[in-house]
Each structure stands twice: as structure tokens, then as C-alpha cells.
Design a protein around this nucleic acid. Structure first.
Lengths: 96, 96
DNA sequence: ATCGTATATCGTCGATTAACGATAAAAAGA
DNA sequence: TCTTTTTATCGTTAATCGACGATATACGAT
């Protein structure tokens, strides 16, 4: 039984995504990325009351979770949501 | 503008619930409670590969998040899901 | 080649988490 | 009353988190 089911709840995977969303700053980052589709790191730093290094760290955590992807655009980094994984996350929650 | 909207995302509240679900053991506890509607602490201890005190701690965290409620039944504790809050959580995720 | 801008990483520090065993507390049963 | 069962809490320990400033890196512009 290979478990490539979309809605199957692998507690580890699900918990990992939840953990990534388990900080208000990261929730705000995700919300903002969803509203703006794509966003440069510096813009996020402006929005949050946190140091640049702290924001960068939160972005790293979000990237590691897979929820957010980042590409380099010249001297800056652009982040956006992995809509696929977000959808899978939504399915997992709905299936609860 | 009072924010008692069901689907409005208060980053703090949302993150708090995510944090509660941000551990595999707690995801398993919630899943089990959803399947069985109600469950005695001891049964959960049997299911998880964790010490009784550790399970009790996880249950406490889930209770503090509001996702799980517990009532005392003689010498034992019965836990179950707060379906209302779970539904609100689902709405918040869906609204992402 | 140098400078300025944007971002990532490093090192640190205090706070929190997760795990456990030991113990306390409450109620049921002998 | 004494014992057993069930659960919660305490104290400890190692690990992780969250924040920051300082620094490194990468690139565009001068």
C-alpha cells in the first residue's frame, strides 16, 4: 500500500506544515504572499515589525516546509506560495 | 470594525491552533479523538509510543489550544474534540 | 575596481519544547 | 482503611526556537 493519497493524513507531514504556520509572523507572510502572488523579501521586511535577519529566517522555515518557494531575481529574492502544497494542506485539514 | 468574522484570519489565533497541531503525536491524538468521538487518556497512552506523562502533557497543550476538551469521569479523564473550534479552524484554512 | 543595495548566514542569548521518571492526588474496590 | 488504578503535575535535561546584530555574499551601477 503506497501512500500517495492526496487526503491521507501522514501525521508527520501534516504536523510539519502546521509547525511552519505555527507562528504569527509566518502566517502574515503567507497571507501577504497569497494576496500579492509574489513578493520581494524587502517588502515583507517593511510590513513586519521584525529585523531583516529574522524575516529571512522565517522565510527559510517556510521554504523548508515547502509551502513557499523562492527564486533569485538579480540582487533580490522573490517568494511565492506553492499553491499545490497549499491545496494539499487544505485537503488534509478538510479531511480531518 | 469589530472582528468577530468567522473566516477572518487573526494571525495570532490561527498560529496558535497550528502550533497545537504542529506535533505528530498531537495530530494522532486529534485524529483518534475524531474517529472515536471520545476517548479516555489511558487508551491514548496505549496507542502512542510515549510515556504517560508525555501524553498527558500533549493533551494539556491541546486543551489549552481549545481544540480538545476534557472532562473528569471518576478516576479517569475523557477527552473529545471541540467540533466548533475545529470547524472554525477549517474555515480559516479554507479562507487562505 | 569600487560602492551601494538586497539578502542570507553566523553566532549568541534567553525562552520554550519535548521527553522522561518520580511523585501527588483522586476515586474505586477489597 | 488500605490498596490499586488512573491521571496530573513536578523537576530535570537536551534540543529547538525566536530574536537580534554583525558579517558575508551577490549583483547592479558608477
Amino acid at each position: 500500500m503506497t501512500e500517495n493519497n492526496d487526503t491521507f493524513i501522514d501525521a508527520e507531514r501534516f504536523a510539519a506544515i502546521c509547525r511552519a504556520m505555527g507562528h504569527p509572523a509566518r502566517v502574515r507572510i503567507v497571507s501577504h504572499l497569497l494576496e500579492n502572488n509574489i513578493c520581494v523579501c524587502g517588502r515583507i521586511v517593511e510590513i513586519l515589525p521584525l529585523a531583516q535577519s529574522t524575516v529571512s529566517q522565517h522565510l527559510k522555515i517556510l521554504k523548508q516546509s515547502g509551502l513557499v518557494t523562492g527564486i533569485v531575481d538579480g540582487p533580490r529574492s522573490c517568494y511565492c506560495i506553492d499553491r499545490d502544497l497549499l491545496k494539499r494542506f487544505k485537503n488534509m485539514v478538510e479531511a480531518l
